[in-house]
């Protein structure tokens, strides 16, 4: 079997129809992981030990079990639509990674900043909102961007719970026509074309802002 250009051009628009779902799922999941990630980070820093240990345990469990199995679990345990399930599960899964990123950002804020806010009689909420977070977030933006790209490349998993994203469409084309080469290559090509420029942009941001200490060891896929 060789590459068939006519067939490739014929199916390209059909696969492209799935790109909206893929990107939609990516951004919904990313929004969830950004929000939940911050909540997890803050809870984990709680001085009430049972709470912070429980949160640390939950984070560890979600982090080291396969997202695919988590998808199946939630899909069959709760009565939610496939897209919603997919966005929530991927969002929650990556919130555990994102919380690690927030943590490194918060840890890189000098201790004197905390002491200064205390001296100025700031409340804890004011300290976080006006002093710590505004300094902790900007340096970690490139790393958060990295996780957006990783999340994007994880979305084909959603075909496991019947979300009609690009890979699902490619597989059904393959099943109908017995030609897998073109549809799968096209999906890979679309992933590469969309993710590579973003990755280059993020590397540029990283170089501009300079790496923050301790950031490299956690982000495996950074």
């Amino acid at each position: 079997m060789t590459w068939d250009w006519a067939f490739a051009f014929e199916i390209f628009p059909r696969i492209l129809q799935g790109v909206g779902v893929t990107i939609g799922a990516t951004f919904s999941a990313f929004a969830i992981s950004l929000t939940l990630g911050l909540v997890l980070t803050l809870l984990r820093r709680s001085s009430f030990k049972p709470l912070s240990l429980t949160i640390a345990g939950i984070i560890e469990f979600i982090r080291v079990t396969p997202p695919l199995v988590q998808l199946f679990f939630v899909y069959f345990a709760f009565d939610m639509g496939p897209f919603l399930t997919g966005a929530i599960v991927l969002g929650v899964h990556y919130s555990t990674y994102v919380s690690e990123v927030y943590r490194s950002g918060i840890n890189s804020v000098p201790k004197s900043q905390w002491e200064a806010s205390r001296a100025l009689n700031f409340s804890p909420v004011q300290t976080w909102r006006k002093v710590v977070l505004p300094q902790a977030i900007p340096p970690i933006i490139p790393m958060l961007g990295n996780y957006l790209i990783i999340l994007f490349k994880e979305t084909p998993l959603l075909m496991g719970i019947y979300v009609t994203e690009m890979m699902m469409i490619a597989r059904s084309i393959g099943a109908e026509t017995y030609r897998f080469l073109e549809p799968i290559t096209i999906v890979g090509f679309i992933f590469l074309v969309l993710s590579y420029p973003c990755a280059l942009f993020i590397r540029y941001l990283e170089r501009k802002s300079g790496q923050i200490p301790g950031s490299a060891e956690k982000g495996v896929k950074a």
Partner: peptide, 23 residues
């Protein structure tokens, strides 16, 4: 490295399982 990092793992798996043998 960029090729394998830029495309998704599942896409690669399907490629090796279904498209590659045909080639």
């Amino acid at each position: 490295v960029e090729l394998f990092r830029g495309t998704s793992l599942l896409v690669q798996m399907f490629f090796f399982a279904f498209a590659f043998p045909a080639l």
